[in-house]
Amino acid sequence: MVDELMPKVTFLPVNKTVEAEEGQSLLDVAMDNDIRLEHNCGGNCACSTCHVIVKDGMEKLSRKTEEEQDELEEAEGLAPTSRLGCQSKIYGDIIVEIPPYRSSLLNEDVTKIEALIKEKEKALNLSRSNPASQPSQTEGKTE
């Protein structure tokens, strides 16, 4: 059921629309809904990794502080409607885009890459713990 009163946030390019609580930050909404938005400093306005570009509803976000603007200047692909996800509190329906350089790794790509990394790590660990022998399915451990 869709709650008419709750603000709705659409994330592009994944094109996922989710409900948010009034006053929640964009970063929190993204995290709650498994939408990947980086946040290196933990959402404390001390980096620019949660950069988003607002496509509609700029006026429905909390005001931008000078501190946020300073961090934003380091963001890649800075646009006039750029905001930091961690500092933007939501007070209405909005549409935001996660810039391409971050969203290139979104969705299935992330899962695929993560699986790949795990596979590689596994192979690496195997060859490390067992440098002489070939990786094999046998259970017995060689000393």
């Binding site: 933990g42 959402g43 404390n44 306005c45 001390a46 000078e66 501190e67 603007q69 300073d70 200047e73």
Partner: peptide
């Protein structure tokens, strides 16, 4: 639950600022 950064009283010193730098 996190922090908010602010240059604080230093802003009033009469330093030439660019935003909060």
């Amino acid at each position: 639950i996190g922090y908010t950064p602010n240059l604080g009283p230093i802003k009033e010193w009469g330093l030439e600022l660019a935003g909060s730098t």
